[in-house]
């Protein structure tokens, strides 16, 4: 039992990260129908900025954190303005290839700015683990969980309450109708990039003390986040969060109870089963048509 709980904790921490990245995917997907392959690079940037501001320059934690998230959101805005906006009339697949190009570019730039080695990032609250019941907890894992839960709640409130959030939801449900009632889509796209990159940076900044910061850490995290988004339903933000946690937990249980060698395969077998049995994802809107 204690083993199971320990696996669960490990899975929850990973899952929280996948959830944040998956959210980033759905936000951009909902406004543009684009699957942003550069999503993982935003996570990497968040971690890298954290390594610089907090790890190297010893800025106060809140300042370093804000700077990491803010700067990455700026990068997101730049990406939208310089790469997505000029091609906004092109096919979705063209836009997706653009995000692949952006991903290669960002990874390459990071390699120059920060070098090829992993960078250490000190934990926010100290390293000493503490024991609860029969399980061991690390302060940073709890921070990761707390941050992502707060981010998800904040985001939900934003979508439900604020006029911008409502506009984004309208836009994702029916872009044409949204335009007809006077919602301008272009600023929304820009905003979705800022929000999505900021969220991913948040994930990167908060996990950096656990995973360290490496210029090529984004690819695999992006892939897992995408799988989580598909699992939960690409058009549902709640689904993304649920998908992220399920993926994280199953991965950890698979590593713990089945085989650590095949744990990545387990996650993706699940993805395939989901696609075949319930294609709209766990919580996705039902817009699947049979041929």
């Amino acid at each position: 039992m204690s083993e199971f709980l320990q696996f669960l904790i490990s899975g929850l921490t990973n899952g929280a990260i996948y959830a944040l990245i998956a959210l980033g995917f759905t936000i951009i997907y909902n406004t543009t129908e684009v699957i942003n392959f550069a999503q993982g690079e935003f996570v990497m940037l968040g971690a890298m900025f954290m390594a610089t501001f907090w790890g190297k320059l010893n800025w106060p934690l809140p300042l370093a954190f804000l700077a990491a998230v803010g700067l990455t959101a700026m990068v997101g805005i730049l990406v939208e303005r310089l790469a997505i906006y000029p091609a906004r009339h092109a096919d979705t697949i063209t836009l997706i290839i653009i995000t692949i190009g952006v991903s290669i570019l960002l990874k390459g730039l990071a390699m120059f700015l920060w070098g090829k080695d992993s960078l250490p990032v000190p934990p926010f609250l100290g390293q000493e683990p503490f024991h609860l019941l029969s399980i061991t907890l690390v302060p940073q894992s709890i921070l990761v969980l707390a941050t992502s839960i707060l981010a998800v709640i904040g985001l939900e409130t934003f979508f439900k309450r604020s006029i911008y959030g409502k506009a984004m939801r309208a836009c994702s449900t029916n872009p044409l109708a949204a335009r007809l009632i006077g919602i301008r889509v272009e600023p929304l796209v820009l905003f979705s990039f800022a929000l999505s990159s900021g969220l991913s940076a948040l994930a990167g900044a908060v996990i950096a003390p656990i995973t360290f910061a490496t210029y090529d850490m984004g690819t695999i995290l992006g892939l897992k986040g995408f799988a989580a988004a598909v699992l939960g339903g690409l058009n549902s933000s709640t689904g993304a969060v649920v998908g992220g946690f399920i993926l994280g937990i199953l991965e950890s249980l698979a590593a713990g109870f089945i085989s650590s060698a095949y744990k990545d395969a387990v996650a993706f077998v699940l993805l395939l089963l989901m696609l075949f049995l319930r294609p709209q994802g766990l919580l996705g809107l039902k817009e699947i048509k049979k041929l």
Partner: peptide
């Protein structure tokens, strides 16, 4: 040299923007 990856990414993005 080492910058080839960056230039490659840039070319990819520019091609898609200008010759979609």
């Amino acid at each position: 040299e080492d910058y080839d990856v960056v230039v490659f990414g840039l070319i990819l993005v520019l091609t898609m923007i200008f010759v979609p």
